[in-house]
Deep mutational scan, measured.
Amino acid sequence: QLRFETNGEEQAKKVLEEAKKHNLEAHVTIENGKWVVHVK
């Protein structure tokens, strides 16, 4: 499982879109005010 700390909602959405293009499972959590994308 990969973990990407992003700078906010915009970047998190871009990472999610990329993951979906590659048929990867991804979800976002907010940790300590940071948007974190988890990709399987």
Rank of each mutant, 00 (worst) to 15 (best):
Q1P: 14
Q1H: 14
L2A: 06
L2D: 06
L2W: 15
L2F: 13
L2R: 05
L2Y: 13
R3E: 05
R3G: 04
R3T: 10
R3S: 08
R3H: 09
F4M: 03
F4S: 03
E5M: 03
E5N: 03
E5F: 06
E5D: 05
E5K: 01
E5T: 05
E5W: 04
T6R: 03
G8F: 13
G8C: 10
G8Y: 13
E9M: 10
E9V: 08
E9N: 04
E9S: 07
E9I: 11
Q11F: 08
Q11V: 07
Q11M: 11
A12L: 07
K13M: 15
V15P: 01
V15F: 14
V15L: 15
V15I: 15
L16D: 01
L16K: 03
L16C: 07
L16E: 04
L16M: 13
L16V: 13
L16P: 00
E17W: 08
E17F: 08
E17P: 00
E18G: 06
E18Q: 13
E18W: 15
A19G: 02
A19D: 00
K20D: 05
K20A: 13
K20I: 13
K21R: 12
K21N: 09
H22A: 12
H22D: 05
N23P: 01
N23Q: 09
L24W: 13
L24S: 03
E25M: 11
E25L: 11
E25K: 09
E25D: 12
A26I: 05
A26K: 00
H27W: 15
H27D: 06
V28S: 04
V28Q: 03
T29E: 10
T29Y: 08
I30F: 14
I30C: 07
E31A: 05
E31R: 04
E31H: 06
E31Y: 03
N32A: 06
N32F: 06
G33F: 01
G33N: 07
K34E: 04
K34T: 10
K34I: 14
W35D: 02
W35K: 01
W35N: 02
V36E: 02
V36I: 14
V37D: 02
V37F: 00
H38T: 15
H38M: 11
V39G: 00
V39Y: 05
K40H: 15
K40F: 15
